[in-house]
């Protein structure tokens, strides 16, 4: 990464440092030179960490895994935007060519009572797993696998379910929502399963259980500002929230 190039930039970073959940954190400033515009944002942080380690400073912890925009592990509130300024893009897919020489970048962890900071920029998103465990599954009978085309599903319904299924559970919706609400995540998961015939047996109990768990985890309430939809790297629509509200009402009244 040391191949200096005339296009390389100097970037001023302000990064949230917090040793652990028990300790108080604060913003620290670092200046990083020789940042290639071809680097991904996370490679830039890797370069920062190499520099910090050389200086015997604890490297910055941040979450990442696939670096391909599919796993939902990366996060980061970058200059006030969840996953950075580029729409429909995860942090790992963001590139330094979005920035100019001399830019200042403020990097913070997702902020939510339900997502406590583990260290620096890493937050604990297991609240999402708990919501999934409460109802985000379908029952499958044992025995031989059914014929894949045995159950006819209308194209529009399948498309709608697929849109919802794009959710990678990164938590950007919670991070971006001014109320720290998880409605978009829960609605996407509910829609994905409840739109399809395979999800019908648990349709009513699923939405109730998942909403109850969401409340229990300490997320805020939706005020319909659609901040979540704008931040979602997968472009999941708030129409799924309306559907979940509808399903919740139906299931509460009818069963």
């Amino acid at each position: 990464m040391n191949n200096s190039n005339k296009n390389n930039m100097t970037i001023h970073l302000k990064v949230w440092r917090q040793a652990s959940n028990k300790e108080k954190g604060k913003m620290e400033s670092y200046t990083l030179s020789d940042v290639s515009p071809d680097m991904s944002f996370l490679e830039m942080l890797d370069q920062l960490n190499l520099k910090l380690m050389k200086e015997k400073i604890e490297p910055v912890s941040f979450d990442h895994d696939c670096r391909e925009g599919i796993c939902g592990m990366c996060s980061l509130m970058i200059n006030g935007h969840a996953h950075g300024p580029q729409l429909l893009t995860t942090t790992c897919q963001l590139h330094m060519r979005e920035y100019k020489d001399g830019d200042e970048i403020v990097i913070e962890p997702w902020r939510s009572r339900a997502f406590p900071v583990v260290k620096d920029l890493v937050v604990d998103r297991s609240a999402f797993d708990k919501i999934m465990a409460a109802g985000g599954f379908v029952s499958v009978n044992t025995g031989s696998a059914p014929d894949a085309n045995g159950t006819a599903i209308a194209k529009v319904v399948a498309d709608e379910a697929m849109d919802a299924a794009q959710c990678i559970g990164c938590g950007a919706c919670v991070a971006a929502c001014e109320n720290g609400s998880a409605m978009l995540f829960v609605a996407a998961k509910v829609s994905q399963l409840s739109l399809l015939p395979q999800g019908q047996p648990e349709a009513a109990s699923r939405v109730k259980s998942m909403v109850a768990k969401m409340d229990e985890m300490g997320f805020g309430n939706c005020t319909n500002h659609s901040e979540c939809m704008a931040a979602c790297p997968k472009g999941i629509s708030v129409e799924h929230i309306a559907r979940m509200n509808r399903d919740f009402l139906k299931s509460s009244l009818l069963q």
Binding site: K14, W16, M27, M77, N79, G80, H81, V106, E108, R111, A176, E178, H225, S226, E227, C228, M229, A230, A231
Partner: peptide, 8 residues
Amino acid sequence: YVKKKTFG
């Protein structure tokens, strides 16, 4: 947040 933008 230290810095937070809204654009919903």
